[in-house]
Amino acid sequence: MHAALLAVEAVAEHAIELPVPPVAFGLTAFGGLVALLLVTYAFRSVGTRH
């Protein structure tokens, strides 16, 4: 058990730091999806004109 805890601590010390806070990833993804929604909404009536 002690060896497993030491191994986990060794891995935790070398954890990769994110370049931005996790909230920024969520806000960026949300903004991208809203932009895609607006593009889709802009072309909502294209099929009915032909």
Rank of each mutant, 00 (worst) to 15 (best):
Ala12Ser: 11
Val23Ala: 15
Ala4Gln: 10
Ala3Arg: 05
Met1Gly: 07
Gly47Arg: 09
Ile16Arg: 13
Pro22Val: 02
Ala15His: 06
Ala24Leu: 08
Glu13Tyr: 05
His14Arg: 14
Val11Ser: 06
Leu27Ile: 10
Val23Tyr: 13
Arg49Trp: 13
Leu33Lys: 05
Gly32Leu: 10
Val20Trp: 01
Ala10Ile: 02
His14Ile: 08
Ala29Phe: 02
Tyr41Ala: 15
Leu38Glu: 00
Ala12Met: 11
Pro19Asn: 03
Ala42Gly: 10
Leu6Gly: 13
Ala7Met: 05
Thr48Gly: 07
Thr48Asn: 15
Gly32Thr: 02
Glu13Phe: 14
Gly26Arg: 10
Phe43Ile: 07
Leu6Thr: 07
Val11Ile: 12
Ala3Leu: 13
Val46Pro: 00
Ala10Phe: 00
Ala10Asp: 06
Leu6Met: 09
Met1Leu: 03
Leu18Phe: 05
Ala24Val: 12
Thr48Cys: 08
His2Cys: 12
Ala7Gly: 09
Leu38His: 01
Leu36Thr: 05
Leu5Pro: 02
Leu37His: 03
Val46His: 06
Val39Tyr: 03
Gly26His: 07
Leu33Ala: 08
Val11Pro: 00
Arg49Lys: 12
Ala29Trp: 04
Ala15Ser: 13
Val46Met: 09
Ala29His: 07
Val8Ile: 09
Val39Met: 05
Ala35Leu: 14
Phe30Gln: 08
His50Val: 13
Ala7Arg: 05
Val8Trp: 12
Ala10Gly: 05
Pro22Thr: 01
Leu27Met: 14
Gly32Val: 04
Gly32Asp: 00
Val34Leu: 15
Leu18Asn: 03
Glu13Cys: 10
Thr40Asn: 14
Ala3Cys: 06
Thr48His: 13
